[in-house]
Design a protein around this nucleic acid. Structure first.
Lengths: 231, 231
DNA sequence: AAAAGGTGTTAAGAAAGCGTTAGGAATGTC
DNA sequence: GACATTCCTAACGCTTTCTTAACACCTTTT
């Protein structure tokens, strides 16, 4: 379980370069989108709002500089230009058109990745959406590791919190006892179904209005438990 | 001729390079500030809050990377590194330390100026806010590295300060022990959770009203610590 | 209606984690 | 080299959390 990596859009027409970059990006945990033409690139950028764009200047259908200009008409998404042209004039033009960085081919993978990280820092704060789960009177801030019930903070022990967030991750679906024991207590042995009953009781007392008649933390007899989503 | 140009701080020890850059910058309408050492650079940055910093990595008194790290402790001022070292590793290290761009000597004036314009675009719109964190009786000036409790300055050792500002950077969120140890003591081995307990005790004694019943420096048993923002 | 299986509840002991103190080692300063 | 500061480490008592057991309950089956 991990948050999906930032989304990178690659606009590049050479198949070889695309393959190389795809491997580098995916290997580093980024989600990945590619376009072979400027038009397609602009279209994908509009639809998916990537967190950063890698742009080759030598595109078949339009000048790379126009792509940057058009993009800057509505967006501040960081753009890293990748180009075979290493002339100073090319760099200056691209940067002044709105690009955030300029890399001359050939370049090293590690440098590219480092410059992508810089770009993501810039687009940064709002790029990382804060994952907050809300349901009824509950509000769970996964980033802060904080649980609120009607605005009041409720303290959960590590196991309680882990059990609760496991149910949240599978919200709406039944989670079998076996699965819960594995995800919360770890694969190792010793975990008994009794633990679940004890900790579900504690969770219900801390979170439910009527712990004996749970509205959300439901038991599925013989199977497991589920976080019930309907109101 | 009304608004003064943006202020650029140059940190560089070679006289020849300084002269060259001074001419380039002043000729382009920038105001200009220079330092020959890392210490002086940090000091000038604190006092004058330049709009961008040009930093040579090869300084006589301290490692250029440390300059970046120290600066990033309180400021987001754009930093363009200028270096004779062109190794990929050097670039990656500098960028990951918090630099925004990396130029290898020799470079063209026009490219440098274009990259400065990019940097200014980034730092641009929002006027750099005073990097001061306040909470309850506390007032922390990240730039001056000064901590006040009810107006009285409180002295923190380097580790105490680092631990405290790490919690401030993640204010409101739980920071795991592992994360704290990594960020404060550095990735290297040897860091034990015991350190955290000792230094949290010291911080609480220096900062909290009732060190044994902390209001802000809270423990999350089994997980880590958090700087609690609510009252 | 009794029995059986699974579930809920409570409490207490065991284990793990935390706060605190203090002394010696390491580091830096003059 | 002497001093001051800061850092690391160990020991001890305390708090929180986890585990375990005993028993009550509820539902379905026979």
């Amino acid at each position: 379980m991990s948050t999906p990596g930032p989304l990178i859009l690659l606009v590049e027409d050479e198949p070889q370069m695309r393959r190389f970059l795809r491997v580098s990006l995916e290997g580093s945990g980024y989600r990945y989108l590619e376009a072979a033409t400027g038009q397609e690139g602009l279209s994908l950028a509009t639809q998916h709002r990537p967190d950063a764009i890698l742009l080759d200047l030598g595109l078949p259908d339009m000048d790379g500089l126009d792509v940057v200009t058009r993009l800057r008409g509505w967006s501040q998404i960081p753009v890293i230009v990748i180009s075979a042209r290493g002339q100073e004039t090319d760099k200056v033009d691209a940067l002044d058109a709105g690009a955030d960085d300029y890399l001359t081919k050939p370049f090293g993978t590690r440098e590219l990745l480092a410059r992508i990280r810089v770009a993501l820092r810039h687009g940064g704060p709002e790029a990382e959406a804060e994952p907050v789960f809300t349901l009824g009177r509950w509000r769970v801030d996964l980033a802060k590791r904080q649980v609120l019930v009607e605005g009041q903070e409720v303290h959960l022990t590590p196991l309680e919190y882990s059990l609760f967030t496991t149910l949240i991750r599978h919200a709406g679906k039944v989670v079998t006892q076996r699965q819960l024991l594995k995800e919360v207590w770890g694969g190792a042995a010793g975990a008994q179904p009794l633990y679940l009953r004890v900790y579900m009781t504690q969770l219900r007392h801390k979170l439910e209005e009527e712990p004996s008649k749970p509205r959300y933390l439901k038991t599925e007899p013989g199977v497991g438990y589920r976080l019930y989503l309907e109101d």
